[in-house]
Amino acid sequence: MTVAVHELPGIRRVEQIMGLPVVVDVRDDDEAGSALDQLFDWLRWVDATFSTFKEDSEISRINRGDLRREDAHPDVRQVLDRCDRLRDQTDGYFDMRAPDGSIDPAGLVKGWAIDRAAAILDDAGLHNYAVGGGGDMRVLGRAIPDLAWRVGIQHPLERHQVAAVVETTDLAIATSGAYARGDHVWNPHSGRSPRGILSVTMVGPELGTADAYATAAFAMGPERAPHWTAQLLGYEAMTILADETVFKTGGFPDE
């Protein structure tokens, strides 16, 4: 692994939000400080509103029966409705409902919040940035004027290496796997963590959708994930199986 070090334009900031390091790397020469303040304020509001770890979040209040879903904040209603649609689109493999009936939309919230964060940077007139949290990101424009963003897809077995490199000027990239936090994705149909699959990387226009699709495909396991990802519209995937076979959909944009 070599890391390119240049005199970089722009501004970089990392903050711990939603239990994750959120990285914003702006390469425009424009003053971006106030846009970054707005972006991190937005993410802190999302955390306060959606976290199941915070007793007074709207999601916690819905789960306790203190708040009706239809009375929740419009953004909360929008996210929960989209979780319902994603559940249908993924044959139930993306499911915000726990077996006890409580809901946790975290599988969509992070990507959705980063999509909105990217929109904040767009509105500020910034054209060259990466914004990501916990290994999932939106990138736009160029890292330096003559070089597009180069995103490494972490090798699931040799974690300081990459298994692929995606070079892009406009993309959302999400990876789901069990190698960093252990078994936190399970198959909602069997209640078990998938075996025989190491990671699924999904790329496309929106991070919320890409992340949810990656989670669903990972939960599907090694037999189904490559085939299910191959028929998605607008999203391309790379699935790494435990026997070290890599399946890429036809348009996966690695070099």
Partner: peptide, 17 residues
């Protein structure tokens, strides 16, 4: 599956604590 050494700007991987 191959391990690559490459010059990169960002890393996509399974969620890190």
């Amino acid at each position: 599956l191959r391990a690559q050494s490459a010059s990169i700007n960002m890393v996509s991987g399974a969620t890190d604590s």
